[in-house]
Design a protein around this nucleic acid. Sequence first.
RNA 1: CGGGGUGUAGCGCAGUCCGGUUAGCGCACCUGGUUUGGGACCAGGGGGUCGCAGGUUCGAAUCCUGCCACCCCGACCA
Length: 460
Amino acid sequence: MVIKPYGFTLWENMKDALDKMFKDTGHVNAYFPLFVPKSLFEAEEKNAEGFAKECAIVTHYRLKNDPENPGKLMVDPEAKLEEELVIRPTSEAIIWNTYKNWIQSYRDLPLLINQWANVVRWEMRTRLFLRTAEFLWQEGHTAHSTKAEAIEEAEKMLEVYAAFAEEFMALPVIKGVKSESERFAGAVETYTIEALMQDGKALQSGTSHFLGQNFAKAFDVKFMNKENQEEYVWATSWGVSTRLVGALIMAHSDDEGLVLPPRIAPYQVVIIPFLRKNDEELTATMIAKSEEIKKQLNAKGIRVQIDTDETKRAGFKFAEYELKGYPVRLVVGPRDLENNNCEIARRDTKEKSIVSLEHIDDYIEQLLEEIQQNIYQKAKTFRDANITKVDSFEEFKEVLETKGGFISAHWDGSTETEKKIQELTKATIRCIPQNNPQEEGKCVFTGNPSKERVLFAKAY
RNA sequence: CGGGGUGUAGCGCAGUCCGGUUAGCGCACCUGGUUUGGGACCAGGGGGUCGCAGGUUCGAAUCCUGCCACCCCGACCA
């Protein structure tokens, strides 16, 4: 997947906000290798198994000219690696192998490290942004001296993700834990934030894992505690990826194109001055005025772009910036300037209004905030309207087919039942929600007793 | 890997059944002019190994054989 500058800026803005949140919670960044020796990779069996089917592997380290096909290259059979290198699908293996050497004492703990990196998972079928063979992400890997502290860390980072999704991406999410079959390979517990796309399908948008001592045992990561006893460390890992860009697109867009929440939009405002090809004076006036407004907005920390392209008409530009999801369009023309006005159009509601240029910076600052809230509310209203409680399998199938969204249903807790339901309906358990109300009920599929509802959905 | 489909200009397509002008259309691109408050118009222009290789034929985008690539559905998955 190629990510062009506009899309990449979205990712950068997400990255910047997240990175700050990680730092604020005591984490630091580091970088670990892309290539993982196979022997390291396979050390934690469950994790290795979980990813085995989607690993790209480096087997050779050299090409040479193909004697049979002049001008072509071939893999040099002489350059076969003694040990194959797995291209990281995730970095637990190499990181824990490294942590082993960094941790000796409880004084070295907790170790709170994050890395921004690319990973490769050889997908059979890819989907732009949502599932690509190579993607960018961040992966936090932490080591703790107690189980409670590690669990607390995993839960804390889930909260960070949820806060980021809701406050920056205007994306309402449901926090919860994964069922056993959806759990990260090698984890004891996987926490997740689940979002709902406008087509009624769910999207796992971030996960945080309590890894127990699984990796510590696999990589022999021990520390000496205060009582002078050796113990295995407790671990977590957590990540979000460029999938979030896909989430953003699919959660908010409409028939006119993207709708970007101001807090991560590459530009929050586009200023479109009316220009005339053969009227240099007018053009100069309009551009000067635009620059003046831009300066004013920049002073408030607002990201602004001015479009001074004379070869495109205004109407064309309007449509184009709507397509790109710019939250606010500010138009200045001779007619407006006579009264010291401008025309403001907001992307989320498509409303246009004439606004005085006096205090335009305050006006837009407030408007951006309003748009941010409105986009979030709209998505939340949609999400809430698409969580349906069902109490029979017939109803389950009916809702899934006609309405989609999350289905809240009783489940007997068995993997077999979950699997059967998936085979019959394509729906999977997205999560067992946090603070889930406990209520007696019967499994929607088997009729076995159940003490809580879980959320099912078709998912990306 | 199984089922289905598509490869013709940067993009989207027609032409292929039934072989026969110089391979065409829309968008985009370039030049000039007129326009300009919601995706402008007119005129002119540039751009093609018709996926690749072989074959049949006087003649192949079109028929035959082989190969390749991509897309959709399924199995896998964040």
